[in-house]
Simulated scan of single mutants.
Amino acid sequence: MDSSGRVLRGAELVSALSEALSNVVFEAQEFSAGYGDDCVKLRSFASELVRDLTADFERYREGLSHLKLARGGGGSLLSQLEVREPRLLGVIRFTSEVSRGLEGELSVEEKRRIEAEAMRMALEYERSQGREPVDVSSGEHFDILSRDPRTGEVRYIEVKGLAGPSLLAELSEAEYRVALEKRDRYWLYIVCNIAKGEPQLVAVQDPLSKMSVSPVGAVKYLLKPKVQS
Rank of each mutant, 00 (worst) to 15 (best):
M1Q: 11
S3M: 08
R6V: 13
L8Y: 10
L8A: 11
L8S: 08
G10A: 15
V14S: 10
S15W: 09
S15P: 00
S18Y: 04
L21V: 10
S22Y: 11
N23R: 15
F26L: 09
A28G: 15
Q29M: 08
F31W: 07
A33E: 06
G34P: 04
D37S: 12
R43G: 08
S44Q: 13
F45Y: 14
L49A: 12
L49R: 13
L53E: 15
L53H: 10
A55S: 13
A55V: 14
R59M: 09
R59E: 15
Y60E: 06
Y60S: 07
L64E: 14
L64Q: 07
S65E: 11
H66Y: 12
L67T: 02
K68H: 08
R71I: 00
G72L: 08
G73Q: 04
G73W: 03
G75H: 09
G75E: 14
S76E: 07
L77E: 13
L78P: 01
L78K: 00
Q80G: 11
L81G: 06
R84S: 11
E85C: 02
P86L: 02
L89C: 13
L89Y: 06
G90T: 03
G90A: 01
G90M: 05
I92D: 00
T95A: 08
E97M: 15
R100H: 00
R100V: 10
G101F: 06
E103R: 01
E105M: 09
E109K: 14
E109H: 09
A116W: 02
A118E: 02
Q129W: 01
G130L: 03
R131C: 09
E132Q: 06
V134W: 04
V134D: 05
S137G: 01
S137Y: 02
S137C: 05
G139P: 00
D143K: 03
L145P: 07
L145K: 07
D148F: 02
R150L: 13
G152P: 02
E153H: 08
E153M: 03
R155G: 04
E158C: 01
K160R: 12
K160N: 04
G161I: 01
L162S: 09
L162A: 09
A163T: 01
L167E: 00
L167A: 01
A169T: 01
L171P: 01
S172R: 12
A174L: 10
E175Y: 07
V178N: 01
A179D: 06
L180S: 15
E181K: 14
K182I: 05
D184E: 15
D184I: 03
Y186W: 07
Y186D: 04
W187M: 12
L188A: 02
C192N: 15
K196S: 15
K196F: 13
K196N: 14
G197Y: 08
L201A: 05
A203L: 08
V204Q: 10
V204M: 11
P207D: 04
L208C: 03
S209M: 05
K210F: 09
M211N: 03
S212W: 03
S212D: 11
V213M: 11
S214C: 03
P215C: 05
Y221K: 05
P225V: 01
Q228W: 09
